[in-house]
């Protein structure tokens, strides 16, 4: 404990949201920030909102049931906020909307052989991606009302694919896998074929999750090897003189944060407002990292600035972390203990 509490950044516990039975796998904010969505082992999607204005307490607003037959692994809102996608161990991805006044599942994406681990919408809202233990990443296009067509089946990974995320601005898809690598894909405009354009290899075990920074020039990855890595893109003709074969951007690992996490790191979230990085770890702790002010852009330094150790932490593995889209420093986490917790990062200033 510091003698000057205001002088160091802290992660202040805000509230616990109880409801899930069994493990909570994932939390996700609505793009406008007025809804928080969580899912888990109980096959129920829970929507949480505030009671009486932005400052009020968060309470459960709605539950979405009967969409999946097995664990719901991840939930993801479309950029317009009208559609919610949920991926499940039952090998399907469900798309929910509120056109009828209440949330209903109006489309189901089928095709994966087994557990769908992750689902993500591209910025345009016209394309989404899913990935599965079947080693494939699928790209789906919104064909028409409630119709989704498979645009590509990518089998670049050699193992279980754990996570898919889209670049914040460009239609570039990144995936993380049990094969220890991260891969990037994009569509060749000449023939609409999706191809793997980069493989990021440096982790020594499963890469559980990845997150782009606001501009998409950097990517954070976290792994079963206990490290957090920061990757940076180098475009053709870059000043640093990094060679870019075939004119493709090259991703280089510019920082490895090791020795901080004591077990598997299951999730990473990069705040697009504050630049802070949050991690969810198998040692029950939520940690916050910040780039130092004098950091060299090509060899950046990230420091652990706060964690959930001090108070009201989760009692089991933390599986997911998500920064609020508009309130700086507001963070949600989900854990094996079944709880969703809200945290507020407070800077030293």
């Amino acid at each position: 404990m510091s003698s000057e509490p205001q002088a160091v950044p802290t992660l202040k516990f805000v509230q616990v949201l109880k409801g899930h039975r069994g493990r909570a796998w994932n939390v996700s904010w609505h793009p406008q920030g007025n809804l928080l969505t969580s899912c888990g082992e109980d096959k129920i999607i829970r929507l949480w909102g505030t009671e009486g204005g932005a400052e009020g307490k968060w309470v459960e607003k709605t539950t979405l049931t009967d969409g999946h037959e097995r664990t719901i692994r991840e939930v993801s809102w479309s950029p317009c906020g009208k559609y919610l996608a949920s991926s499940s161990f039952d090998a399907t991805t469900a798309i929910w909307d509120k056109k009828s006044g209440e949330y209903e599942c109006n489309a189901t994406l089928e095709g994966h052989e087994n557990e769908v681990k992750s689902v993500a919408w591209a910025r345009s809202g016209q394309v989404l991606a899913t990935c599965s233990r079947d080693k494939t990443v699928w790209v789906w296009e919104v064909a028409e009302e409630d119709e989704y067509e498979c645009a590509a089946v990518l089998n670049a990974h050699t193992q279980d694919v754990k996570k898919v995320v889209w670049h914040p601005n460009d239609e570039i898809l990144a995936s993380a896998s049990y094969d220890n690598t991260i891969k990037m894909f994009r569509e060749d405009p000449s023939d609409q074929e999706w191809t793997c354009v980069a493989t990021l290899a440096s982790h020594t075990s499963t890469v559980w999750s990845i997150a782009f920074n606001k501009t998409g020039t950097r990517l954070a990855s976290c792994s079963d090897d206990g490290t957090l890595k920061i990757w940076q893109v180098y475009l053709p003709g870059n000043q640093e003189g990094i060679s870019t074969p075939d004119g493709q951007p090259v991703w280089k690992c510019v920082s490895t944060i090791s020795g901080v996490h004591t077990r598997s790191v299951y999730d990473v979230a990069w705040c697009h407002q504050t630049g802070l990085i949050a991690t969810a770890c198998g040692d029950d702790i939520v940690r916050i990292f910040q780039e130092t002010l004098d950091s060299d852009p090509n060899q950046p330094t990230f420091n652990l600035v706060a964690s959930s150790v001090a108070s009201h932490g989760h009692t089991q593995d933390v599986n997911s972390v998500a920064w609020h889209p508009t309130v700086p420093g507001l963070l949600a986490s989900a854990s094996d203990d079944g709880d969703i917790r809200l945290w507020q990062f407070l800077d030293s200033s």
Binding site: T71, F89, N114, K162, Y178, T206, D224, S264, G282
Partner: peptide
């Protein structure tokens, strides 16, 4: 590696 992957274990138990 497989035994240490809690997600794989969780899915197997379903």
């Amino acid at each position: 590696k497989q035994l240490a992957d809690k997600e794989r274990v969780a899915a197997a138990l379903e």
